Deep mutational scan, measured.
Amino acid sequence: CHSECLGNCSQPDDPTKCVACRNFYLDGRCVETCPPPYYHFQDWRCVNFSFCQDLHHKCKNSRRQGCHQYVIHNNKCIPECPSGYTMNSSNLLCTPCLGPCPKVCHLLEGEKTIDSVTSAQELRGCTVINGSLIINIRGGNNLAAELEANLGLIEEISGYLKIRRSYALVSLSFFRKLRLIRGETLEIGNYSFYALDNQNLRQLWDWSKHNLTITQGKLFFHYNPKLCLSEIHKMEEVSGTKGRQERNDIALKTNGDQASCENELLKFSYIRTSFDKILLRWEPYWPPDFRDLLGFMLFYKEAPYQNVTEFDGQDACGSNSWTVVDIDPPLRSNDPKSQNHPGWLMRGLKPWTQYAIFVKTLVTFSDERRTYGAKSDIIYVQTDATNPSVPLDPISVSNSSSQIILKWKPPSDPNGNITHYLVFWERQAEDSELFELDYCLKGLKLPSRTWSPPFESEDSQKHNQSEYEDSAGECCSCPKTDSQILKELEESSFRKTFEDYLHNVVFVPRKT
């Protein structure tokens, strides 16, 4: 048989008469490798580009789960590009990614509803959504962080984005990388972005840091009482949809009607710091009717980097990364020049730590249904340095008659930039024990000054392991946590139920 035959053949030295091919099969003959313009397919066939392209389009058009959109890589027609490569849609070739590779997620039936953290986790790592997304989240724990972890990498949506009755959302900033909504599939009414009845939605994105392009379709905003109209108009300008909307697409009466839409800028007039305090004062603000001013709200939190936005980490279910302080308005003076500047002394802060701070007014709604208010920009203030805590785990070892090696770990709280350490030492008198000992005694162990690591005695271990207080009263049991108490109650309830079950099964009433 021919060298490319495997198993047997019907005619000697003829690659077209093989029972099976050793390498690849091409047009009725066995070959060692697939010549151009053919590609290896499933490690035994040679196919042309049209064959591989037909497989790709067949799966793409069917949208069946589990099928493969075949691509070409290293002269092979394979189910998908290997790690580190992405497909070129024009020629199906796998090309190296520039940075992290995109991950295209194809949605069944063309859309997916995100109504819980669990459903959001199914899209973790996706960068391109081939379909439409509907966000409908009523509640949950730590929602802002969970949504950002699972949806934060999405850069492109081919269909539309719909935010509907998501009472738990305060902001859409968890879509931190969303840059493009194509609108290839539109919501009824030709809408590519749809926001309806979101009672706590206050911000779409921080438009000073976020760009969003909507290729096709219109915007729809109705019944978002805490979303200011200025935020919607800003989205029109940034996304390129200005002029597409009709009169009733953006409701003037049901958007922002319960919001404090600040239209003035508060400026800080005085800032002073110490290692654990920050004193702030800002310019006074009074609405047209000074009785509408209820006070100020001061927001602050630790910020290692200057990239904080107002609604980071917030949701309507209680999660809030900001510390909020309510401040009463100052006494009002008739003389504008003698107006008191409101302020606040922030206490209990960490030394040498940068804080993000902003302040906003708290006002009631005027009778004319106009909203007044003022808010400052987010500023960054760093507390002063102070003395560091003591170095940890000092170790001293003498390696000769004239040297001592000293080692330690950095302090747990540096409280500033540590530039150097101060080492103090003092000579001590020799131990009298060394002169009084009889060095001729056998088995004498000389006193040693070398360091030995501390260890816990058996008594201390027994005390720590004991669940009861000892007789001397030195140790006591740790208080039980809520989960331990709940577990004990469940076990007790189970024992009672099981005992009742045994009584009912074992003891049967005697027939009379």
Rank of each mutant, 00 (worst) to 15 (best):
K103L: 09
K103H: 03
K103F: 05
K103I: 14
V104S: 09
V104C: 03
C105K: 00
H106F: 06
L107M: 07
L107K: 03
E109I: 03
G110R: 10
G110K: 04
G110W: 03
K112G: 02
T113W: 14
T113M: 06
I114P: 01
I114A: 02
I114L: 08
D115S: 08
D115N: 07
S116D: 15
V117C: 04
V117A: 13
S119E: 11
S119M: 11
A120D: 01
A120W: 03
A120Q: 03
L123W: 04
R124P: 01
R124Y: 01
C126W: 00
T127H: 03
T127K: 05
V128S: 14
V128R: 15
V128G: 12
I129C: 11
G131M: 01
S132N: 11
L133G: 00
L133I: 02
L133M: 08
L133D: 00
I134H: 00
I134A: 08
I134E: 05
I135P: 00
N136K: 05
I137N: 12
R138P: 11
G139C: 04
G140E: 05
G140I: 11
N141W: 10
N142S: 10
L143Q: 14
A144P: 09
E146Q: 09
E146M: 12
E146A: 13
E146T: 04
L147E: 01
L147V: 07
L147F: 09
E148Q: 13
E148C: 07
E148G: 05
E148L: 06
L153G: 10
L153F: 10
E156Q: 08
E156I: 09
E156D: 12
I157A: 01
I157S: 00
I157E: 01
I157H: 01
S158F: 08
S158C: 13
S158Q: 08
S158L: 15
G159I: 00
Y160H: 12
L161V: 08
L161N: 00
L161Y: 01
L161M: 07
L161H: 00
K162Q: 15
I163R: 00
R164L: 15
S166E: 01
L169T: 08
L169C: 15
L169I: 12
L169W: 01
L169V: 12
V170L: 12
S171N: 06
L172S: 02
S173Q: 05
S173N: 12
F174E: 00
F174A: 09
F175A: 03
F175M: 04
F175P: 00
F175R: 00
R176I: 07
R176K: 11
K177A: 04
L178V: 04
R179S: 09
I181T: 01
I181K: 00
G183S: 03
E184F: 13
T185N: 09
L186A: 05
L186M: 11
L186N: 07
I188Y: 14
I188G: 09
I188M: 02
N190M: 15
Y191M: 05
S192C: 04
F193D: 01
F193Q: 00
A195H: 02
D197M: 06
N198S: 05
Q199I: 11
R202G: 02
L204P: 02
L204H: 01
D206H: 04
D206L: 07
H210M: 04
L212C: 02
L212I: 07
T213G: 13
T213N: 05
T213C: 10
I214H: 02
I214C: 06
Q216S: 08
G217L: 01
G217M: 01
G217K: 03
L219A: 10
F220D: 02
F220R: 13
F221Y: 09
H222Y: 03
H222L: 15
K226E: 10
K226F: 05
C228F: 03
C228S: 03
C228M: 02
C228T: 03
L229P: 02
L229R: 11
S230Y: 02
S230K: 15
H233F: 08
H233A: 03
H233V: 09
K234E: 14
K234N: 14
K234A: 08
E237T: 12
E237W: 13
V238F: 09
G240Q: 15
G240L: 15
T241G: 15
T241P: 07
K242N: 10
G243K: 15
R244T: 07
R244G: 08
Q245W: 06
Q245T: 09
Q245S: 10
Q245L: 06
E246L: 09
R247M: 10
R247H: 14
D249K: 15
K253V: 08
T254R: 07
N255E: 03
N255Y: 05
G256I: 03
D257S: 02
Q258L: 13
Q258T: 13
A259V: 13
S260I: 12
C261I: 03
C261A: 07
E264A: 03
E264F: 07
E264K: 03
K267I: 15
K267P: 04
F268C: 02
F268H: 00
F268W: 10
F268S: 01
S269C: 15
S269W: 09
S269T: 07
Y270S: 08
T273P: 03
S274T: 12
F275S: 13
K277C: 14
I278T: 01
L279I: 04
L279Q: 06
L279K: 15
L280V: 15
L280C: 04
R281K: 12
W282T: 02
W282H: 00
W282Y: 00
W282V: 03
E283I: 05
P284A: 13
P284C: 04
Y285K: 05
P287Q: 04
P287L: 09
P287D: 04
P287A: 06
P288S: 10
P288V: 15
F290R: 04
F290V: 01
R291D: 11
R291I: 10
R291S: 12
D292H: 15
D292P: 04
L294K: 13
F296Y: 02
F296P: 01
L298N: 00
L298V: 07
L298F: 14
F299W: 12
Y300Q: 02
Y300P: 00
Y300I: 10
K301R: 11
P304E: 09
Q306K: 11
N307C: 01
N307Y: 03
T309R: 03
F311S: 08
F311N: 14
F311R: 11
D312G: 10
D312C: 10
G313H: 13
Q314V: 03
D315G: 11
D315V: 09
D315Y: 09
D315R: 15
A316E: 15
C317S: 10
C317P: 10
G318Q: 03
G318A: 03
G318R: 09
G318P: 11
S319Y: 13
N320P: 04
N320C: 05
W322K: 00
W322N: 01
W322L: 02
V324G: 04
V324C: 07
V324M: 10
D326K: 06
D326F: 05
D326V: 03
I327G: 01
D328H: 04
D328F: 07
P329E: 08
P329Y: 03
P330W: 03
L331Y: 05
R332L: 04
R332P: 10
R332S: 10
N334K: 15
N334I: 07
N334M: 06
P336L: 07
P336A: 00
S338V: 14
S338H: 08
S338C: 04
Q339D: 15
Q339N: 15
N340F: 14
N340M: 03
H341W: 12
P342F: 12
G343M: 13
G343I: 15
G343A: 11
G343F: 03
G343Q: 14
W344G: 15
W344C: 04
M346G: 04
R347H: 12
R347A: 10
R347T: 10
R347F: 09
R347V: 12
G348K: 01
L349N: 00
L349E: 00
K350S: 10
K350W: 02
P351T: 12
P351W: 03
W352Q: 15
Q354W: 12
Q354T: 04
Q354V: 04
Y355M: 02
Y355R: 00
A356E: 01
F358A: 15
V359E: 00
K360D: 03
K360A: 14
T361L: 04
T361P: 01
T361A: 11
L362Q: 03
V363R: 12
T364D: 15
D367T: 10
D367Q: 07
E368W: 15
E368A: 14
T371E: 09
Y372D: 10
Y372N: 08
A374H: 05
I378V: 03
Q382V: 06
Q382T: 10
Q382L: 06
Q382N: 14
T383S: 03
A385K: 11
T386V: 06
P388E: 07
S389M: 05
L392R: 01
D393E: 06
D393W: 15
D393T: 11
D393M: 12
P394W: 13
P394K: 11
I395S: 06
S396W: 11
V397K: 15
V397I: 13
S398Y: 11
S398V: 04
N399G: 07
N399H: 04
S400L: 06
S400C: 05
S401H: 04
S402N: 15
S402I: 02
Q403T: 03
I404N: 01
I405L: 15
I405S: 13
K407R: 11
K407T: 15
K409D: 08
K409F: 12
